[in-house]
Write a protein that binds this DNA or RNA. Structure first.
Lengths: 214, 214, 214, 214
DNA sequence: CATGAATGAGCATTCATTCAT
DNA sequence: AATGAATGAATGCTCATTCAT
């Protein structure tokens, strides 16, 4: 069992800003389910994973699962959103503090590959499951994450910083490079986010400059 | 005399190159299962697909499936191999007739995106299913296809045509770009392989030139 | 206060020796499956019986079967063991209170045929199913039951009470007589254990005395 | 494959008493199926055996089976009858040439155990399959075989050679001893029919003499 | 709220049997 | 008569989900 460090916390202080026993347990259980799900999805892929696999790993009762999520699909989406919600703000921050597109690409790739190395599992799932139903994978959060990058590109095009290239394709290339290189990086004995970021950055920065306007 | 019974007639036909009715049906059924599988996998993803979904689509009896494939996995692999076996010779051919790396990249992307547009389904599956278990997806044929590209890169590095870059990462980038841009292209109302190939080619060709030797 | 919820009530009951409703149902279901299995095995034989036959007879849902037994084989063995576990202690008791081998044979046959008449079904199965795979039938409990008889024989040989006959064959004869006569007895309108026991006893007691030492 | 020495015999001579090619093949196939069935039943038991198992072993096509037998049950019965048809005449012969009941028992056990050692498989099946459905096992031939022994007993009772014992129980004992001792004999490294027969004979002969008239 | 047994729909697979060749 | 692919009913079993406790 993965996480049995749930429940059994301490006494109540409903007046303070702290959480009561009940609330704490609830959060702990929810987190426990998400952690178990992350591991199982990463191991088996979305389609092959069963709710049973997940609850078995939590040590909770089967019925308890349904107090937190309606279905396997719902946990999966929660997981995807969670991952994206962690990386998006970083990329957005990089966007803000970068003065050129080149700088943004460089900083964003750095942020991404470093995050990837630190939180491998979630991103493995994202990579390997784009599958099943892309539709489902297209969690609002995820679509938004991709679209955000595209918007940055279009913004820079409008500002004359980038040539008027096909922004969707450029975003696709940026993302595709991130994904495949990310996979290979994670497969290596000693993942080196720095190297991966440098590689991807160079490729994109040098590449886009020669692109023909649409 | 006429004691040459039907089975022997079939033998005769076999030597003459023609197929008996039985053999024809068998081939047709096999093809039918593969086609159904292609569609269902594309629609539901590998993990969500059931053998029943596949046979339901063929109209054959459930037992018949097992005369042709031992399991869902086996059909899937047959499909993957088939797809890869169609694209690989084209890419190899491009490699042979190309005199520079740049030319090879350009020609290979052309071949790939054109093929993609013509045989969308199989490649959709390849894109969306790398998932489940990457391991399973790693059909010998597929691994070989990727490795072949990597070998071309290393060959050119040895010949001084390319700087001594990380060949695995470059291959990953080439493949990642192909995949993501391919996906976006297929999602468009009027897929334009020519445009996709031009875009990807420019990106890679301009990009790799600036890469630092390892 | 009344926060002692129902589950804890069950715990309380457990310590008091009583069973909660849940536990009662579980026991009842298990018994129900065993009873159904006993009947079906008796009617169809092991090989011909399907798990579905068994659950159909219980009225439970198909999945419920698997909450109690992993397979048909497992119920079968539970049944065999149960039967043997009922008869063995009786035979052992007879052994203890008998002062001669003759007395033991007489008492044991009495106990056996009486038990047989009272619990026909299980022993019918034992008779008719030894078949299928004798191996499987060779539940530890059953092998032990037979071996126990053989050991009594060898003990008496060592003590000079019996001639040094082939103990395995004598055990086989004792068992074979019990089985076949038992079958015939059960097939009669009014099974008469007393008569069967007298018949078998006479045969064995008179017979073994003339056996040649090995 | 067990028996592929079928077919491909020689030319026709329908005029002679010999069998034509067709007839020979037919007999060979029938025999081949029976042999395969004997082996499979002996290995798996009746219930667990499938028609597929049998035909797989013959090397014939699945459809061919049905030219010879309507079902698994039919082959099984053919096999049982065959076995009984081989042993019955021997026992009947012994009956005829024996002048006393004792002599008959002795000779019959000899014949039986010797036959058993020589044709182990069929009798193993008979022993282990009494199971499935005793009804089905009660092939006319088999019932008749048992009844024949019983009739001999009753005849001797009528002639005052035997006390007026329960003839069914005595037959059951005779048969039970034969079966269980037969099993144990076959399980030994070097089956010794002579020893088994001597053992069984002594037991029965000495035993029945003390039986009380009904 | 947590629990975990009950449920029955659904799945993969095997089987006996048929029938076109 | 032999063949072996097609058939679909039947089997063992798993799963998501519910609900009494």
């Amino acid at each position: 069992m993965a996480d049995t460090d749930l429940v059994e916390l301490n006494d109540v202080e409903k007046t303070s800003g702290k959480l009561g026993k009940r609330e704490q347990t609830k959060l702990a259980n929810r987190e426990s389910i998400l952690n178990a799900a992350r591991e199982v999805f990463a191991e088996l892929g979305y389609g092959e994973t069963t709710v049973r696999d997940i609850i078995r790993k939590t040590g909770l009762a089967s019925g308890t699962f349904y107090n937190y999520f309606k279905s396997k699909e719902e946990v999966f989406e929660a997981l995807m959103d969670e991952g994206m919600m962690r990386i998006r703000p970083r990329i957005r921050a990089e966007r803000i503090r970068s003065r050129t597109f080149d700088e943004f690409i460089r900083n964003a790739y750095h942020a991404y590959f470093e995050y990837l190395a630190a939180d491998m599992e979630t991103f493995h799932i994202m990579r390997r499951n784009p599958n099943a139903l892309r539709v489902r994978m297209d969690t609002p959060e995820i679509v938004a994450g991709f679209e955000e990058i595209r918007e940055y590109i279009e913004e820079d095009i409008r500002n004359g910083i980038l040539p008027a290239v096909d922004s969707e394709f450029l975003m696709a290339a940026v993302v595709g490079i991130a994904m495949e290189i990310g996979d290979r990086m994670l497969a290596r004995a000693k993942p080196d986010p720095e190297q991966a970021a440098a590689f991807a950055t160079t490729l994109v920065i040098q590449g886009y400059k020669a692109l023909q306007p649409k």
